Amino acid sequence: MNKIIEFLIYLVLVTGIAYGLHYFVLHMYDQDHWWIGTGYNLTSLYLYGSISSLVILFILVGADFAMPKHLGFIFLGCVGLKAIAGYIFIQSGLNLLENNFIELNFLGVFFLYMFFDVYIAFRLVNKEINLVEK
Score class of each variant (00 low, 15 high):
Ile4Trp: 05
Phe116His: 08
Val61Asn: 09
Ala66Trp: 09
Met1Ala: 15
Gly37Pro: 02
Phe65Asp: 13
Phe24Pro: 01
Leu97Tyr: 09
Ile102Ala: 03
Val55Gln: 02
Leu71Cys: 01
Phe111Thr: 13
Asn126Val: 01
Lys134Asn: 09
Ala63Gln: 05
Val132Asn: 02
Trp35Leu: 09
Gly49Lys: 07
Phe116Glu: 08
Phe115Pro: 00
Met67Val: 13
Leu26Asp: 09
Glu103Asp: 09
Phe111Met: 12
Phe89Gly: 08
Tyr46Glu: 05
Ile129Asn: 04
Leu97Trp: 07
Leu97Lys: 15
Asn100Val: 07
Lys3Ser: 11
Gln31Met: 14
Phe122His: 07
Tyr23Ser: 14
Met28Asn: 10
Met67Thr: 14
Val109Arg: 12
Leu11Lys: 05
Ile5Ala: 10
Ser53Thr: 09
His27Thr: 15
Ile5Gln: 11
Gly86Ser: 11
Leu57Val: 08
Ser92Met: 11
Ile129Pro: 00
Val25Tyr: 13
Asn100Ala: 12
Gly72Ala: 05
Glu6His: 04
Gly108Tyr: 10
Phe89Ile: 10
Leu42Val: 10
Phe110Gly: 06
Glu98Thr: 15
Val25Ser: 12
Leu45Trp: 04
Phe115Val: 05
Ala18Val: 02
Glu133His: 10
Ile59Gly: 05
Asn126Ile: 01
Ser50Arg: 02
Ile51Val: 13
Glu6Asp: 03
Leu11Val: 05
Leu94Trp: 11
Ile9Trp: 01
Leu54Asp: 01
Ile74Met: 12
Asn95Ala: 14
Asp30Ile: 04
Lys69Pro: 00
Tyr87Leu: 12
Leu47Tyr: 07
Ile59Cys: 09
Asp30Arg: 10
Val132Gly: 00
Ser53Pro: 01
Gly108Met: 11
Pro68Cys: 06
Tyr87Phe: 13
Gly93Lys: 09
Glu128Ser: 12
Glu103Ser: 13
Gly39Thr: 12
Asn2Gly: 11
Lys134Ala: 08
Asp117Met: 07
Gly49Val: 08
Leu94Val: 15
Leu8Glu: 12
Val25His: 12
Gly93His: 03
Ser92Arg: 14
Leu8Trp: 05
Ile17Phe: 11
Gly62Cys: 02
His70Thr: 11
Phe7Asn: 09
Thr43Val: 15
Asp30Pro: 01
Ile84Leu: 14
Gly86Tyr: 04
Leu94Ser: 08
Ile36Met: 08
Ile129Glu: 04
Arg123Ile: 01
Ile84Arg: 03
Lys69Thr: 12
Asn100Lys: 13
